[in-house]
Simulated scan of single mutants.
Amino acid sequence: MEKTAITAVSGQLGRAIAQKFIATHGTENLIGIARTPQKAKDLGIPVRKADYNNRLEFDDALKGIEILLLVSSMDQPQNRIQQHRNIIEAAKANGVKKIVYTSIIGDPDNNGFSPVVRSNRQTEEDIKNSGLQWVIGRNGLYIDPDLDYLEQYIADGAIINSAGDGLCAYTSRNELAEAYVHMLTEEELNGQIYNLVGNPISQSQLAEYINRAFNTQLEYKAISVEEFRNNRIKDLGELLGTIIGGIYEGIKMGAFNVKSDFEKAAHRPHKSVPEMIEEYKRNG
């Protein structure tokens, strides 16, 4: 097996992918990369230090690597493109053969989340133009944050946002991890973009599924895009509040209601939302 590296293994998605890779392919051919390697030492694999802002660190971190999974930066949209280019250029200079990239679904033009989507689309183009083999996953929205927010939903007695009747194709980090391990290891998946999502549901359906799983009495309450965005900005600040507001505006407009390619990548159907909620409960 070719020597494989996963970036951001100290973060939640990078860690989940590394753990799934270890479970299915062992540790011998896996290298982690992290800005703070000690945060990932429990994975039981070598972890090399590299910061997305530092091209020279990635020149060192990618020596001997043949396949690279690039986890999208969590920085502000205007910083992400160059950060990703640092890694792409280091990969080209150091003999990496293939890049797998974690992108995202969404609308690049019409809401507060669009700058994030645009930055991801630019990196997709940079990777496709790199001359390397590539595979791109466009991740759906995680179900996990909604479940992490359950206490607030219970306090409010409702899920309150601006999505209206819009449908959202959710996913989870565990589901994504399985798909990305296949994308790393199977050549027949190369050269494709995959929407890594499950079946789309409404916010009312989400409330119903949460009620079944947690014996709650939630309902869904729709508010205006402007009111929800202002609420999020008040609680989270201008940058994050605008992004979160834009996500739910995007749901309302249909930007997260996309056809799933998950089964093509993972060779099995995506878990349903009730199944993901039950998995979340089991994992505490």
Rank of each mutant, 00 (worst) to 15 (best):
Ile233Gln: 10
Val96Lys: 10
Leu206Phe: 03
Leu184Tyr: 03
Glu219Asn: 13
Gly137Met: 04
Thr36Ala: 02
Asn283Leu: 09
Asn230Glu: 05
Asn230Phe: 03
Gln133Gly: 12
Met183Ala: 15
Pro46His: 07
Glu178Ser: 01
Ala207Lys: 14
Gln82Gly: 13
Gly140Lys: 02
Phe214Cys: 05
Ile45Pro: 06
Arg85Glu: 04
Gly254Lys: 14
Ile31Val: 07
Arg35Ile: 14
Thr27Ile: 10
Gly198Gln: 10
Glu219Ser: 12
Thr102Glu: 06
Gln82Lys: 01
Gly250Glu: 11
Asp107Cys: 14
Glu151His: 01
Ile6Ala: 08
Lys271Met: 11
Gln133Trp: 04
His25Gln: 15
Ile6Thr: 01
Lys234Asn: 12
Lys281Gln: 11
Glu249Leu: 07
Glu175Cys: 04
Ala23Leu: 07
Asp144Asn: 04
Gly157Trp: 11
Glu125Tyr: 08
Ile243Asp: 02
Lys271Gln: 10
Leu206His: 10
Ala50Ser: 14
Leu218Cys: 02
Met253Tyr: 05
Gln12Phe: 02
Lys92Val: 11
Ser224Met: 15
Pro269Asp: 04
Asp165Ala: 15
Asp109Lys: 15
Arg48His: 15
Gly26Tyr: 08
Gly198Phe: 05
Tyr101Gln: 13
Ile160Val: 12
Asp60Ser: 12
Val9Asn: 00
Pro108Arg: 03
Leu13Asp: 02
Ile251Leu: 05
Glu227Trp: 08
Ala155Gln: 14
Pro46Lys: 13
Val197Gly: 01
His182Glu: 06
Arg15Phe: 00
Arg121Val: 15
Ser130Lys: 10
Asn161Gly: 13
Ser204Phe: 12
Thr27Phe: 02
Glu249Met: 00
Tyr153Arg: 09
Asn230Pro: 05
Glu249Lys: 04
Lys221Val: 12
Asp126Asn: 01
Tyr280Met: 09
Tyr149Phe: 12
Val47Glu: 00
Thr171Pro: 02
Ile244Gln: 12
Tyr52Arg: 02
Gly131Thr: 07
Tyr220Ser: 11
Lys39Ile: 08
Gln38Val: 15
Leu68Ser: 01
His267Gln: 05
Glu178Tyr: 00
Phe228Gly: 05
Val117Ala: 12
Gln122Met: 15
Pro269Glu: 01
Thr171Gln: 04
Val225Gly: 06
Pro37Asp: 07
Lys41Pro: 09
Ile127Met: 03
Lys92Ser: 13
Phe262Arg: 11
Gly140Leu: 07
Asp156Tyr: 14
Leu239Tyr: 06
Glu151Asp: 13
Asp144Phe: 00
Met253Ser: 06
Leu240Lys: 07
Lys281Val: 14
Asp107Gly: 15
Ile251Arg: 09
Ile159Cys: 04
Asp75Trp: 12
Ile159Asp: 06
Ser260Tyr: 03
Val100Leu: 13
Asp42Arg: 15
Val96Trp: 10
Tyr52Val: 08
Ile243Ser: 03
Glu187Gly: 14
Leu196Ile: 09
